[in-house]
Each structure stands twice: as C-alpha cells, then as structure tokens.
C-alpha cells in the first residue's frame, strides 16, 4: 500500500488550538487511529473536526449520536418495508437488494474516493455497549452487509474524530484503540487569541475587564455549571452592544444570564458579588 502524501494539520484562521491538541491530531492522522477528544462543553471539540476538514480540504461526515442510536445505524440501513411494498405493487428493481440498502455516515465515509473526516459526535450519549459494537469496524475499516453479501471497505482510511462529554465512561477495549486528548479549558493567553479570532477589533479595556470577570465567575466554587468559551463570546457581544462603561463590567457583571444558565448559579453569583463588595 502506498503511503498517502503526508498532510499535517496546523490549525486554521477560524480555530485556535493549543500546540498539544495539534500534535494529538497529527499523531492520530499518521497512526490512522481514531482520535478521542474529551473536555468541558464549549471547548470546541466539534469545531475541531470542521476545522481539520477545512484545512485539509476534505469532506466531513458527521454522525450525531443520540441515546437511541445503534451502532448499525451508522453503517447501513436496510429498508425492508419499502421493498415489501414495492414487491406488492410491482415496482422496478425489487430483485436488486442493493437498492434498499442505504449507507449511514460511517459507510459513506468508507466509500468516499478521497480521504475524508468522520466525526462521531458525543459518543457517550449512546448506550453503554455502543462503542464496543463499533470496535471491528473502526479497527479494520470494513463491514459486510449480510443482505447483499457486499463488503464495504474503506478506500482511503478516513480520519476519525470522536468526541465525548464524559457523561458515561467508555469501555477499556474501545479506549485502547484510540488516541486520547483532553481539551483543557483555555488559559487566559489562549482565550485572548480565541477571542481575537472572533472579534478582531475589540477594545483592549473591554477585553481585559470581560476576561477578568469571566475567570472570576468560573473560579467561584458555588457555580454548578461553569460558563464556557462560547458563552464568553456571546457575553462579549452583549457587552459591546450595551455600551456599559468598561470599569463597571467587572463590578456589576451585567447580563449574567448570558454566562450562567441556571437560576441557582445566578443566585450564587449575586451572593458572591455581595461578599466581594463587602471585602473592598
């Protein structure tokens, strides 16, 4: 097998990644193993796949996992009912079982002529045994459709990116086959670069105040659901439109509802603000 031209992912204009994440992506691509990404919600796990696809100019297949998703759904679906109906009313090509086998996202990715990206999003949403059911397919990059006897084999091994929100622990056998990376919550430096990508013309003082307030809110122990990057980005948008004096941002924390989504957390923030006001 001739090795494909070596491609490297170096991040992109719209996605700022840490150096560790970039090297994890490249390790996974070179070893042709699935890359498993874990991390707090809102750290850009799903965005990464899009960005890798853009920068390699490859097609992206997204398989969103739900609690009812079965492993086979991603491979193929055999529409037996349609076939029965067609045979009843003499539709064309009923003999051709192939016509009633529809490939899922994994099947499509395997069939793709060029190397593509396959994103299996939020794998932990599915049943406990779900990852185990995919072991063979992801290892060998092939599966057989019993109805037609056809074997779908990857023409070019796709780059597989799997995300998990850590709702369920994944089985060991599955983990052994993956490259793992935990996306850290961005530290201030990285966060500034991320925001610069979204708002290139933001005023420095507003940014300083917003970031200070944001990390203060995150550091409060009483907050149950910590605000994430995407919430900070929305919040900064709200702040720029409101025209609130910059010095007030850190003290008042206006539009806290954008950052915090739970009532309990908003109450906790109010209490923390009172405590802080008393201190100074």
């Amino acid at each position: 097998m001739s090795a494909p031209a070596k491609q490297e992912f170096k991040g992109s204009n719209e996605y700022v990644a840490s150096q560790e994440l970039l090297s994890a992506v490249n390790i996974a691509m070179t070893l042709e193993k699935p890359l498993l990404l874990k991390g707090e919600p809102g750290t850009g796990k799903t965005m990464l796949a899009q960005s890798v696809a853009n920068s390699l100019g490859a097609k992206l297949y997204i398989w969103n996992i739900k609690s009812t998703t079965k492993a086979q759904d991603g491979l193929y679906v055999y529409d037996v009912v349609q076939r029965l109906y067609d045979s009843q009313f003499g539709g064309e090509g009923v003999d051709n079982i192939e016509k009633y086998v529809h490939l899922g996202q994994v099947g499509e990715a395997f069939e793709s002529e060029d190397r593509c990206i396959l994103l299996i999003d939020e794998i932990d949403k599915a049943d406990l045994e779900f990852p185990n059911d995919l072991l063979w397919e992801l290892d060998q990059m092939e599966f057989t459709i019993p109805q037609t006897g056809r074997t779908v084999k990857a023409k070019q091994r796709p780059v597989i990116i799997i995300t998990s929100n850590a709702e369920k622990e994944l089985p060991d056998a599955f983990l052994r086959r993956c490259i793992f990376h935990y996306i850290d919550f961005p530290e201030e430096d990285l966060m500034r670069r991320i925001i610069a990508v979204h708002y290139p013309k933001l005023e420095q003082r507003l940014l300083d105040q917003a970031i200070a307030a944001f990390y203060w809110v995150r550091s409060l122990p009483s907050i149950q659901k910590k605000p994430s990057t995407s919430e900070l980005i929305d919040w900064i948008r709200a702040l720029t439109y409101s025209g609130i004096p910059y010095d007030e941002i850190q003290r008042q924390i206006p539009f806290a509802g954008v950052l915090l989504k739970k009532n309990e957390d908003l109450d906790a923030l109010e209490k923390a603000k009172e405590r802080r006001a008393r201190k100074f």
């Binding site: 090297s23 994890a24 070179t30 070893l31 060991d172 793992f180 935990y182």
Partner: peptide
C-alpha cells in the same frame, strides 16, 4: 509511532506522543 518518526528528535513531542497514545483518561 516512534518508528514513523512522530516524536522527531524532540523530547517534548515524545512526551506528548506517549501521553496521547498511552493515557486514556484525564
């Protein structure tokens, strides 16, 4: 991975490589 030269000649990249391949939980 080492055979494919993924670590280069860099100790840091070797560390990142080991962690990504060997460790499966934060």
């Amino acid at each position: 991975a080492l055979d494919k030269g993924l670590a280069g000649a860099s100790f840091l990249r070797f560390y990142q490589l080991c962690r990504a391949v060997l460790v499966k939980s934060e």
